[in-house]
């Protein structure tokens, strides 16, 4: 089950990479288009696959629980199995067409690597969140519902709320608030990170300048990656913690 779907996912990215390169005929432009796709799609796929895999392998999990294996190894093994195979599909699926197109001689290689790194982070984050939701909900329908809601919230609704606050409080200095707000959502964080790397921050006006000042520096980059790592570590820790207390 897992392997078949990750091949489909791999083929999808392969196709996407090839098509984008043919349509754009330019590496940097293809990277921008890809970013828009990845930022929304990667979290969605990570969430859905995570929840689906957990519920599908429930019987198998029960079989393993009666064996002399630690609980944390069972659940971390399952999580890494899903998250890493999804990441591999992403990296290979997009990497192969770009490498053939001449990525290594191009200046877009750093932008592209950043794209893949954030894509991998997003996969790890959202698969972990999905496992958390599935662990806390016996009911599959509820679990799926919450997982989709979480994705919808972080990918779409959060931005809306964020924008509303900015408009409501426009009389106040908002540099810090908007920076923190961006940091707290892994999708926004990834998007900003890539956008600024791509040197189109001029489009973002004044906030863009503030963001550029922060994210453009190596300090900002490091802080962003630390934030993304925290976003991975927290849910993974909760998987370990929660699975130790659960009854089967």
């Amino acid at each position: 089950m897992r392997s078949r779907w990750s091949y489909v996912y791999f083929a999808f990215y392969l196709l996407l990479g090839v098509v984008l390169l043919f349509l754009n005929n330019d590496l940097s432009k293809a990277v921008i288009t890809l970013m828009n796709v990845i930022i929304v799609l990667v979290p969605l796929i990570g969430t859905i696959f995570g929840v689906m895999y957990y519920y599908n392998s429930q019987e198998f999990t029960e079989l393993l629980l009666a064996q002399p294996i630690k609980r944390s190894s069972i659940f971390l093994g399952q999580y890494l199995g899903v998250a890493l195979s999804l990441s591999m599909s992403l990296i290979l699926g997009l990497g192969i067409p770009f490498v053939f197109y001449g990525l290594f001689e191009s200046s877009a290689i750093w932008d592209f690597s950043l794209l893949l790194i954030t894509g991998t982070f997003l996969t790890l984050i959202f698969t972990a969140l999905a496992f958390n939701i599935a662990l806390s909900n016996e009911n599959k329908i509820k679990g799926f519902g919450y997982a989709i809601l979480l994705w919808l919230f972080l990918a779409v609704i959060y931005d809306g709320l964020f924008l509303m606050t900015l408009i409501l409080f426009e009389d106040y200095p908002l540099d810090k608030v908007s920076l923190i707000g961006t940091m707290l959502n892994p999708i926004d964080l990834s998007r900003t990170l890539i956008l600024l790397k791509l040197d189109i921050s001029a489009l973002l006006g004044y906030t863009g300048a503030v963001f550029k000042q922060f994210f453009g520096t190596s300090f900002g980059l490091i802080v962003s990656f630390v934030m993304l790592t925290i976003w991975v570590v927290m849910p993974v820790l909760r998987i370990v913690f929660k699975s130790k207390k659960k009854d089967f």
């Binding site: 029960e62 629980l65 009666a66 130790k244 207390k245 009854d247 089967f248």
Partner: peptide, 9 residues
């Protein structure tokens, strides 16, 4: 039985 097996805490 599941308590003995550690499946139920």
């Amino acid at each position: 039985i599941k308590s003995v097996l550690g499946m139920v805490i």
